[in-house]
Computed example of a mutant assay.
Amino acid sequence: MYIYILTNQTQTVLYIGVTNDLMRRLYEHSSGRGDVGKFTGRYQTDLLVYFEISPDATQAIEREKQLKRWTRRKKDALITAFNPTWQAIDLETWTG
């Protein structure tokens, strides 16, 4: 399971999610980019800047909830520690 954070071009919005197939989920987010009825479409959050792997769904969901409760400052620090330049992550070439 994956816990992930997306942002928009200006890094003003963060979206936190959980999935068992990160590549598929990123495709779904980018496909709904213009869908104003969905958070990621409305705010154009389709740039992956952070992810982590969890051994099971229960722990992943708990971690997602934990991150969502964090302040923006704390989330920014987590992303920066993992991805200092906030460069959009391409899972096919990411070396971390």
Rank of each mutant, 00 (worst) to 15 (best):
V49M: 10
V49I: 15
T12G: 14
T19M: 09
Q87F: 00
T10E: 13
A88H: 11
Y27W: 14
P55T: 13
D21V: 08
L67K: 00
K75N: 12
R69T: 09
R33V: 10
M23Y: 13
K74C: 04
G37T: 13
A81S: 13
T80W: 00
V13L: 01
L78F: 02
R24I: 03
K68Y: 02
E28L: 09
G96Y: 01
Q59H: 02
E62R: 02
I53W: 05
T85V: 05
S54G: 01
L47C: 13
R33Q: 09
T85P: 09
R42K: 12
R42N: 09
D56R: 14
I61Y: 06
W70E: 15
I3S: 07
Q11Y: 07
I16A: 07
I79L: 02
T19I: 09
P55N: 14
R25W: 08
E62M: 00
I53C: 05
L91V: 03
Q66S: 06
L67W: 01
L47A: 14
L48I: 11
I61W: 00
Q44K: 15
D56V: 12
W86Q: 07
F39W: 14
S30D: 09
Q44E: 15
E64C: 01
K38H: 03
Q44P: 14
R25K: 12
T40W: 14
P55W: 11
W70K: 15
G32A: 13
I53M: 05
V49W: 04
R42P: 02
R33D: 10
D35G: 00
I16E: 11
L14Y: 14
F51K: 03
Q59M: 01
Q87K: 11
T40H: 15
T95Q: 13
F82P: 05
L22G: 05
T95D: 12
